[in-house]
């Protein structure tokens, strides 16, 4: 974006650059975008409002903009309620999301690098095999995968929650596309210095792919934290619920009060909102490098 701003200084008519419309167009855009931004933020506002209100305030016939005295006690009440395994499910989600991210990143980047860079005779055949599995959408395989995992005895178990989700063909594909575009000269220099594939991957390629790896990591983490179908299938006992399964159960069984429900939702999204706010810049740059740009 900043590069574009410097390029604008050449005499150029308005309306020819992304970034420079006529004054009228820009004002109209600003107005429309502001309205949309308010609409997009409403759900977040509602979560916060309801989480800090009492049930009577939420269900009052008069619309309430914000509780006059925020009910902060909703937070300790949520965690102290023995009927609600909130702490346990948050912990489960954290373990699953971290392990999934680390595992996926390791397996998929090495596989993507191997497919992109190592001149093995049958590499293209292996790549077509990976592509073929991409044709099977992950969610359709949940019945067969459940069959597999239950015969391994991994139901309601971290192994069942984590391991089957690590071998993500799509992420491996993105990694391969990215490594194909990685400057070859850097690796050749490393090769001359006597590094093998393994050495040049870890010492040259990985340290120079920060944005890309950060983007893949954040997307994997968000996906794992927010995943619902697989944890629902595998997490049969309440001790193995992730936070999404717990929230869904509270929502459908209506066992908790409204304000508690929204406090639980607030607690569930906070970690990710922080991840987004702080890592957004890397994420945006990284997504641009994932090879989807064509």
């Amino acid at each position: 974006m900043s590069g574009m701003a410097t390029a604008t200084q050449v005499k150029r008519p308005a309306g020819y650059k992304p970034g420079v419309g006529t004054r009228g167009v820009r004002t109209a855009n600003l107005v429309i975008l502001s309205v949309l931004a308010v609409l997009f933020l409403i759900p977040f506002y509602l979560i916060l409002r309801n989480a800090l209100a009492t049930d009577a305030e939420i269900t009052a016939p008069e619309w309430m903009w914000f509780p006059s005295s925020p009910s902060w006690e909703n937070l300790p009440n949520l965690f102290n309620d023995p009927a609600v395994p909130m702490l346990r499910s948050l912990l489960n989600s954290a373990i699953v999301a971290v392990a999934t991210t680390v595992g996926t990143l390791f397996l998929c980047t090495t596989a993507g690098y191997g497919l992109a860079r190592i001149p093995y005779r049958h590499a293209d055949k292996v790549f077509y095999l990976v592509l073929a599995t991409l044709m099977i959408p992950g969610a359709v395989t949940f019945v067969p995968s459940f069959v597999m995992v239950s015969s391994l005895g991994w139901i309601s178990d971290f192994r069942g929650l984590i391991i089957p989700t690590l071998f993500n063909g799509f992420v491996a594909f993105l990694c391969r596309q990215y490594f194909l575009g990685f400057p070859k000269e850097l690796e050749e220099a490393a090769r001359v210095d006597g590094l093998g594939y393994w050495g040049s991957f870890w010492r040259i390629v990985v340290p120079n792919s920060g944005n890309f790896l950060a983007a893949i990591a954040v997307i994997t983490f968000v996906g794992a934290w927010n995943s619902f179908l697989w944890p629902l299938v595998i997490g049969r006992s309440p001790e193995s619920w992730t936070v999404q399964v717990a929230l869904s159960t509270f929502l459908t069984a209506q066992t908790v009060s409204l304000s508690q429900l929204f406090m639980a939702a607030l607690v569930a999204i906070l970690p990710l909102v922080f991840v987004f706010l702080f890592l957004q810049r890397f994420l945006v740059q990284g997504v641009a490098q994932t090879g989807l740009k064509g």
């Binding site: 931004a37 997009f40 409403i42 509602l46 968000v222 927010n226 429900l261 939702a265 999204i269 909102v273």
Partner: peptide, 23 residues
């Protein structure tokens, strides 16, 4: 960009909760 991207951090379960019980 941040505002429009932020909902991506929300799970479908949380969004369903807000849509069903509030909006």
């Amino acid at each position: 960009r941040s505002v429009f991207f932020l909902p991506f951090a929300c799970s479908y379960v949380v969004a369903s909760l807000v849509w069903k019980m509030s909006i």
